[in-house]
């Protein structure tokens, strides 16, 4: 227990020091963290709702519910896949676990996600006047999203030490998945013969419950997706633990 508290203290110190270093250099940096999702949301709302006229009763909430977790997963993969490799000198010099450094980067991404969530979701909910009981399920959807993002990013970050082009692979995969995941279009736009693309898409399984909680999807469907998301995340957590146990010694050789 004492070591958990110590680890948490170290993660906090590193996260805030990192933010301090980043935002000191450019004050616009923090604004960009919030502006980035707002701009993406505004442009996509305009294009898909007004230009392409996608028909969905609560499209603005639907899009926001898909876009925010997408940006969280994407930015975590993008930023943190290289965290262990980039911190190689610190990891090799000090008696600190690479996982602490990785956790501090992930916390940084989560803070950005949460800031964007507070700034964008609450006003949109107030404007839309959609307050369904589904909102009660939102904390669980966020927890599953965080668990999935943390485990996948940790796996990629460890693999990046051994395979230095893994970042390009994740980047490419995300650019494909953006179109294959119903973020800006409702899932019922997909023909039934191709529904399997969504059913077997883990990113959709993780994002959809978050989306459903915001715009008021069917509770039964949200609960099923949450269960699937939890199972996927736990399996990935097991994979990560196995990978870490197998590779943690050799990490120092390759850094």
């Amino acid at each position: 227990m004492a070591s958990l508290v110590q680890n948490w203290q170290q993660i906090k110190v590193l996260t805030f020091a990192n933010m301090k270093a980043r935002y000191r250099k450019t004050f616009v940096g923090f604004a960009w963290v919030v502006l980035n999702p707002i701009l993406m949301y505004s442009v996509q709302s305009l294009v898909f709702k007004k230009f392409l006229q996608i028909d969905h009763p609560e499209y603005y909430l639907f899009l926001l519910g898909g876009l925010l977790p997408w940006i969280f997963i994407n930015s975590s993969w993008d930023t943190c896949t290289t965290t262990i490799t980039n911190a190689s000198q610190v990891i090799k010099s000090f008696q600190i676990s690479p996982l602490i450094i990785l956790a501090s980067s992930l916390l940084d991404c989560f803070i950005n996600f949460f800031a964007a969530f507070l700034i964008m979701v609450i006003p949109t909910l107030l404007i839309s006047q959609v307050f369904s009981i589904n909102l009660m399920l939102l904390p669980l959807s966020i927890s599953i999203l965080v668990l999935f993002t943390v485990t996948t990013t940790s796996i990629f970050s460890i693999l990046h030490v051994f395979y230095r082009d893994i970042k390009y692979v994740t980047h490419f995969a995300m650019s494909l998945l953006f179109f294959l995941t119903p973020i800006f279009y409702p899932p019922d736009y997909i023909p039934s013969s191709l529904q399997w693309i969504v059913n077997y898409n883990p990113i959709y399984i993780i994002i959809a419950p978050f989306q459903g909680c915001l715009y008021g999807g069917a509770i039964r469907e949200i609960l099923i997706l949450q269960s699937q998301g939890l199972i996927i995340s736990i399996i990935l957590l097991g994979l990560f633990v196995r990978l870490w146990q197998k590779k943690k010694n050799e990490l120092f050789l390759k850094l």
Partner: peptide
């Protein structure tokens, strides 16, 4: 207790 250091020419965050 153990304390170890393997390289002293390293700053955690060079910008700070």
């Amino acid at each position: 207790s153990t304390r170890a250091i393997f390289d002293t020419g390293v700053g955690i965050l060079p910008d700070l």
